[in-house]
């Protein structure tokens, strides 16, 4: 699966009042300051790797679960590995380094050139049910030696974040992916209720099994799903304007027109 491991350098736009070399102590004295992304107004993708489609990322704002439309869910996927096989910190280091390799076929994570580091932006090209292609991205919100968190922009399937972590307990290293999310808009919410949740479960079950397999273990994935808030946020229906599904579909439908224009443009200039 090494063909999925592609890299690109991308950064999020820092707010103008931040100094690039500002020390943690200068922004509040917290000992975890370097683990968090700097404040961003809107995402920016500086380099797009070959094969990646940069849609629905540049200029988008980040969205927490609070900005989404659908019910709020917390989904937790865990696998347990012998601690003598891998420590929590080594597991997370490997997970960061080989993150795209563990994804199911048909889905691509174009990792930042500098790796999974706070503030970096990655492009995602996904395959949804019905073979629909979807282009979006994520920003690395937080990263330390034992965990990292990805946060979604406007238009992503869901508003929220995914935290990947590892802990050591009773001689085992527990690897975990935890999703805290709401569907971004009514269409994605409908999709989740019509099989999307199952597909997401399959996606992360596959990922967790691949992580375990990398360390030589055939693992059973423990899945826990909790509905944190049953209510839908109808005031957020207009999030559909940013829908990456709609925008990706329009982009794909426009491919023949773009091809004809490119050919005509080529002839006129050649």
């Amino acid at each position: 699966m090494s063909d999925k491991h592609e890299t690109a350098a991308r950064t999020a736009d820092a707010l103008p009042d931040q100094q690039p070399n500002q020390l943690p102590d200068e922004i509040g004295g917290a000992r975890d300051a370097t683990h968090w992304a700097k404040a961003v107004s809107r995402l920016n993708v500086s380099q797009v790797p070959e094969g990646a489609i940069n849609l629905n990322v540049t200029g988008k704002r980040l969205t927490s679960p609070i900005q989404g439309f659908g019910k709020m869910w917390q989904k937790t996927y865990q696998v347990r590995l012998p601690q003598e096989r891998v420590s929590a910190t080594d597991l997370i280091a490997t997970w960061k380094q080989r993150f795209p390799d563990f994804w199911p076929e048909g889905n691509r994570f174009y990792a930042p050139l500098t790796g999974i580091e706070p503030g970096e932006v990655a492009l995602l090209n996904m395959t949804l049910p019905g073979r629909m292609k979807l282009s979006t991205g994520v920003m690395v919100l937080y990263a330390d030696e034992e965990s990292f968190t990805l946060m979604t922009p406007q238009g992503h399937m869901f508003a929220g974040w995914i935290t990947f972590s590892a802990t050591e307990k009773d001689g085992e290293t527990v690897a975990q992916a935890q999703v805290l999310m709401r569907a971004s808009d009514p269409i994605f919410e409908l999709g989740l209720t019509m099989g999307g949740h199952k597909q997401e479960d399959r996606f992360w079950n596959h990922t967790m099994r691949e992580v375990a397999a990398h360390f030589g273990e055939i693992a059973v994935v423990d899945t826990q799903v909790v509905c944190v808030d049953k209510r839908r946020q109808w005031s957020r229906w207009s999030n559909i304007w940013h829908s990456s599904a709609i925008r990706s579909t329009v982009y794909m439908l426009g491919a023949p027109v773009r091809a004809v224009r490119a050919r005509l443009g080529g002839k006129s200039t050649g």
């Binding site: 004295g29 917290a30 968090w36 700097k38 404040a39 704002r61 980040l62 927490s64």
Partner: peptide, 10 residues
């Protein structure tokens, strides 16, 4: 610092 984190995470 954490005010900024609360802004980033919205």
């Amino acid at each position: 610092h954490y005010r900024e984190i609360f802004e980033i995470t919205r």
